[in-house]
């Protein structure tokens, strides 16, 4: 008997799959392996050692950049999630109003603008603001990161709101709950996994950003990615591999945490 169509039984499927996995993971695996190299090379193996992790951890520039990255990511992701939640509520939980579709498009527009364009635009405006206000702190980076994180945070929250059974909020109103009470006791608890997902996504995106940060930052405001970029220009040592490996581990932990938590919530 003929089996139904299955892509797994097409000729070349295994080869293509292996090639894809190799392309995805071989560079990462190589990177991780050479982080443990005792020799100062990313190409010649000199034996296992944690030396480069030690170097990275005692490098105050690395520590500074990491702390800065976390500060920016934490604040920016929090703000972006708050704004995105409000935007999602305003586009799903109100009576239809004029311009709703426009607002929806407007919120998502940043997804379509090439990052380099946003970066150049920000570079110009931030330069002017710095000149006018005299302020040159982390605020600019935080504002920029918040802005580009909003659409990414907005999408999972909106998806969750749209999938939520409207009759639950109706039931709350029927049981004498005023709108704010309904939001606090029903909408928010049910929205929580979406909000958490949005926060994690925004956090990782902010942590990872190079282009916008590179254009907006003032002197001495390197984040971990821009610091690494600067170092690599000067030549590469396994210290970069060690930092990357730690970074990778962190990302994996955050994403795993998100899956576990959102599983629990539903």
């Amino acid at each position: 008997m003929r089996k139904g169509f299955s892509v797994r039984h097409q000729p070349g499927f295994t080869a293509i799959a292996i090639a894809c996995f190799a392309l995805l993971y071989l560079p990462v695996v190589t990177l991780v392996v050479y982080a443990f190299n005792s020799a100062p090379s990313v190409a010649a193996w000199g034996g296992f050692s944690l030396h480069w992790f030690e170097v990275a951890l005692t490098n105050s520039d690395v520590i500074d950049a990491s702390v800065r990255s976390f500060q920016i990511a934490t604040v920016a992701a929090t703000l972006a999630t708050v704004f995105a939640t409000m935007a999602a509520l305003a586009t799903t939980r109100t009576r239809r109003y004029r311009g709703q579709t426009f607002i929806y498009a407007f919120i998502n527009q940043p997804l379509m603008v090439p990052e380099i364009v946003t970066a150049v635009a920000l570079l110009i405006i931030v330069a002017q603001l710095k000149a006018v206000t005299g302020y040159s702190g982390l605020g600019y980076l935080i504002a920029a990161h918040t802005a580009f994180c909003i659409p990414f945070a907005y999408l999972p929250i909106r998806a969750r709101l749209e999938n939520m059974d409207l009759s639950l909020e109706r039931a709350a109103a029927d049981l004498y709950a005023k709108p704010l009470y309904t939001f606090r006791r029903v909408t928010l608890p049910l929205l929580w996994p979406g909000i958490l997902g949005a926060f994690m996504l925004a956090f990782v995106l902010s942590l990872d950003d190079v282009v916008i940060t590179e254009f907006v930052k003032s002197g001495g405001q390197d984040t971990l990615p821009t610091y690494m970029l600067g170092q690599i220009r000067r030549g590469i040592t396994p210290e970069m591999n060690a930092i990357s490996t730690a970074f990778l581990l962190l990302s994996v932990v955050i994403v795993t945490l998100f899956f576990v938590v959102s599983r629990k919530c539903t």
């Binding site: 059974d165 639950l168 109706r170 039931a171 109103a173 029927d174 049981l175 049910l190």
Partner: peptide, 20 residues
């Protein structure tokens, strides 16, 4: 009047119980 100001309660067809 909005629903929360009416002394009227509803048993919904799909029950609409709060899952959390």
């Amino acid at each position: 009047l909005p629903p929360f100001q009416r002394p009227v309660n509803t048993v919904f067809q799909n029950y609409a119980l709060f899952p959390h």
